[in-house]
Amino acid sequence: MSTDTPRQLTLRILRSSPGEGIAPHWQDFRVDEAEGMTLFIALNEIRDTLDPSLQFDFVCRAGICGSCGMLIDGRPGLACRSLTRDFGPLITLAPLPVFALIGDLSVDTGSWMRGTAERLETWIHSQAEPDLTAVEARMEPELAEAIYELDRCIECGCCVAGCGTLRMREDFVGAVGLNKIARFRLDPRDERSDEDYYELIGDDSGVFGCMSLLGCHDVCPKGLPLQTQIAFLRRRMVAVGLK
């Protein structure tokens, strides 16, 4: 950035506090833009200097924990990974939809994600007695890479908020859940078959409900290949359905 006078940013934040009965309303905050400023920094500045009651979540500040998802100018994104210079002088911030609202920009993604994990049983299913002293079975590096690629999901909820299908039908699993199924399907330690996965996602609230709007793919801050994974699962599940 040059030595010009810094931009004045207006952060228009949708404030609310269901607990205290404060209905949603917009409130403007003005901050001076600094070099390399992220929304996370701007929000902290507001909280430190203008309004200590402002609620928003963060932990890692580095796009790893998935806590700081919010609607930035209407699109889901991570506050800690969004540079203010990529936006206009007026930036609107709102909490992610779908998830339970805690207050202001803070939502409870955790309960929702936990529900998805339980619904889709996103853990390794194995009949074998675990032998805690044995050396782990070897895995081809390519396979380990492929699993790791899908395991990069930080459960930030951006794909959930970006999905038009899910906005219409709350029982739709969403891309985050489908991606997890794809991940466990790859894992040789998970003994579940495609028939087993069909029991979990083989209906219109599962993979067949997805209308390929690809909002999920386009907003995922981790750049997960949701488009190809969902299409792949759809093919596999149709194959089960035709058997």
Binding site: G74, R75, G162, S212, D218
Partner: peptide, 29 residues
């Protein structure tokens, strides 16, 4: 018909989502 918004609430949820997201493929749908 399975994909159509089945109620005004669903309709409104999608319409609002589409307007806010400004996302090509969502608009195409």
């Amino acid at each position: 018909l399975r994909k159509f918004p089945a109620s005004f609430r669903q309709y409104q949820a999608f319409a609002e989502h589409r307007a806010r997201l400004r996302h090509d493929d969502t608009g195409l749908w």
